[in-house]
Design a protein around this nucleic acid. Sequence first.
RNA 1: GGCCCCGUAGCUCAGCCGGAUAGAGCGACGGUUUCCUAAACCGUAGGCCGCGUGUUCGAAUCACGCCGGGGUCACCA
Length: 580
Amino acid sequence: MNLFAEMRALVVASLDRLAAEGALPAGLDLAAVTVEPPRDAGHGEMATNAAMVLAKPAGMPPRAIAGALAAVLLTDPRVLAADVAGPGFLNLSLRPSVWQGLVGNILTQPDGYGRSTLGSGRKVNVEFVSANPTGPMHVAHARGAVVGDALARLLAFSGWQVTREYYVNDGGGQVDVLARSAYERYREAHGLSPEIAEGLYPGDYLIPVGEALKAKYGVSLLDKGEQSWLTEVRDFATDMMMAMIREDLAALGVTMDVYSSEKALYGTGQIEAGIEALRKLDLIYHGTLEPPKGKTTEDWEAREQTLFRSTRFGDDQDRPVQKADGGWTYFAPDIAYHFNKVERGFDELINIFGADHSGYVKRLKAVVSALSQNRVTLDIKLIQLVKLLKGGQIVKMSKRAGTFVTLRDLIDEVGPDVVRFVMLTRKSDVALDFDFDKVTEQSKDNPVFYVQYANARVNSILRKAREAGLAVDDPSLAAADLSRLDHPAELALIGKLAEWPRLVEIAARGNEPHRIAFYLFELASDFHGLWNRGNDEAGLRFLQDDQVASQAKIALARAVGVVICAGLGILGVTPVEEMR
RNA sequence: GGCCCCGUAGCUCAGCCGGAUAGAGCGACGGUUUCCUAAACCGUAGGCCGCGUGUUCGAAUCACGCCGGGGUCACCA
């Protein structure tokens, strides 16, 4: 039940009626007509811009349209008042029974409130994390993981058929480097001193890999040339890294549906097929790139290469798919991989990338739109940096030195719920400060705590009511005499609850899960506000001597809890029932 | 130099598929506890929404151009 959508439908029906009566021209485009919560509470409970957007096409003054529309709307039993205001806004007030009914509606279908069919079952693929399988996940990956997972939950909640996917970059040079690094740890496991040459991965996390190699291969790989062990060690180490990454993701509450391997694309003809498909569209040619402009290019040399015509799609230059030595560039398997996603029948693709990949956006969008004949959309969300702060100091991360804060460190210190919530308290394309001191604090400074605390208060009310012998299951609460929720402060809180489906829809349309976190904070704030007003006005307390009134107020609290739990569910954060 | 992101209160940031007098938290100042957890709440002060032009009945929001900050830029994935 989306009250705003219902009222918009009423506005549209009323406009149709005016058109049928000849009061408005027929055939007006009503797409721009909206019904929204007004920013200022003094402007009624809902406002529509209908008169203003229709004034020009209808050739009528906006206030005249608004007046006519108001008269029609007032014939609906739900509408209490319809006032023309400002340049032609129509401010609506609804009968309290409409708002009160929403509480009952929420409690009748607690799992359904806010869900929608917006996605109408379209298949969407969310590719995220896709960290190289060369080490544990660190903080930067954590944000992408959280945003991707929350987005996947949000879309599933909104009617999409979602696949979560991880693209394993196990086909390039970096997994050879991993193999060489692991081999040194294997030697170390045999008591030899490892030679971690420049460019190898120095991290301690490879020590267990070396030991596992020893356990499996004994001494058989010692004193052998690289070509005799590289493949085996690489596959072995990559598997161990992926196992570790899966554990890290699981610790964060993230489960992938599909792991796609880059390596598996080689030698199967899939890369060739993808490039062939592009060639048929005249998007592949053999040529030489211009030297890059404005950048120091000492070692640049002209080179004939197989190129993708990404400039046709607004890219700065065409992009090579083959290296000078004839091997594929990393871009070639990317083409095949996205071709593969298109062929698997997805209607929408979403990639969550680190902001340092911004340069790849255009070419990938070009590939998807070309290979799907514009059937499939690709949205790429770029995730900005996370700055870790501790005691007011920036925690330095250095991968090269092997000292970096891993996702696991973070989870061990503050828990997965805090990591997830905090990572969603910023728009994803804005840098985020993760302050250890703040997020473990139990105060309003800490939004995780604040929202959890609101939910704990809801549960506290239910607990006490139950102890007092009241029936507080959802059906009983839904059947309460909700007309007792007649105080403006209570109706205002219901108004906030009414915004939930609309908010979810906006967040889903924009692929912006952070909006959920902000909404929850606002809802918690409104709820805490009402709670505290009970200190001054006993009539506003949730628990009353009058059982009928009490049950209605408890129903309201429970409805708040339902929405908070639904929102936390989308964020992947566990609601707590008590703050202990 | 090209491309991408950002520029909103002292600080950290929402709002941006155009809507009315631009919001929140922190910090500052002043209040609130016979009462369901004061781990909370209420109030006050604080703004050329980076600058300019354009589109529009209407611009923080859209377009273009500047200024400032960050990221990134063939043959590494």
